[in-house]
Nucleic acid binder design. Structure first.
Lengths: 119, 119
DNA sequence: GCACTACTCAACCAAGCGGTTGACAAGACC
DNA sequence: GGTCTTGTCAACCGCTTGGTTGAGTAGTGC
């Protein structure tokens, strides 16, 4: 199974039903039955989805009489956005540098742009 | 299989090896062999990983002699960050509103906070 | 044309995933 | 104490996934 936290989060959100549940939970906490209502699957299937979301740290569950209200833990999103932003920025900066190199190069010399670290 | 674009992207990044490859590609384009080097798996396995990344729109591949340089398409990240930011903001605003409600409430009335849309 | 490099395609396999059904647990209500 | 509600646990099933090996393709270079 996905050992690291980041894998669990990405994996959890890879399923449209689970993303849908997260969207629902962003509006407010909900019980398992409430979450299951829109879907044409068994309650057990929904319970499994919630377990995946819980293992990823995306939701938490308390107890309130027989009900088990599900709560969105939005701070886990930070883990993802940090990862994404890091490599997005890195890639963008690379393009910028490449543009600089090409701009500083006489037109008749500019080759098919190669990769690596153009110092 | 994951029908929608967002599922494919999340699913592609759910694998640590593939995230690692994305990290490598953020530095610069690379060939399949270069990408395979750090891992103790067959070239075919790496090729499969790249196919997943390509189907998700995260990388593109051109041809250059026998080589098939792999290029990171960082703009697909936007799809994810948009989705994430939407629900993060929504959840944060909900907390803020809830705080306001509690703050405006006399201390001896404040109940165990329930969910829904507190008008 | 023949060998070499750099891959890809196809078939297979074990493990995991999303779904099911059936049985059970925890708490409210009578 | 029985029953109803709300949910979980366990076993099973078919499909997908990540890995393998073996064969094939595309382009280079002698």
């Amino acid at each position: 199974m996905a050992a690291d936290a980041l894998s669990r989060v990405f994996s959890a959100l890879a399923d449209p039903t689970r993303r849908d549940m997260v969207a629902r939970l962003a509006v407010g906490d909900a019980t398992v039955n409430e979450l299951a209502a829109p879907y044409d699957v068994s309650l057990q299937a929904v319970s499994k989805h919630l377990k995946v979301l819980e293992d990823a740290g995306l939701v938490s569950r308390s107890r309130e009489a027989q009900r088990r209200p599900v709560h969105l833990e939005a701070q886990v999103f930070d883990l993802m956005t940090k990862w994404i932003e890091r490599y997005r920025r890195q890639a963008e900066e690379r393009y910028r540098r490449l543009d600089d190199v090409l701009a500083a190069m006489p037109d008749d010399v500019a080759p098919a742009p190669k990769e690596g670290t153009p110092s």
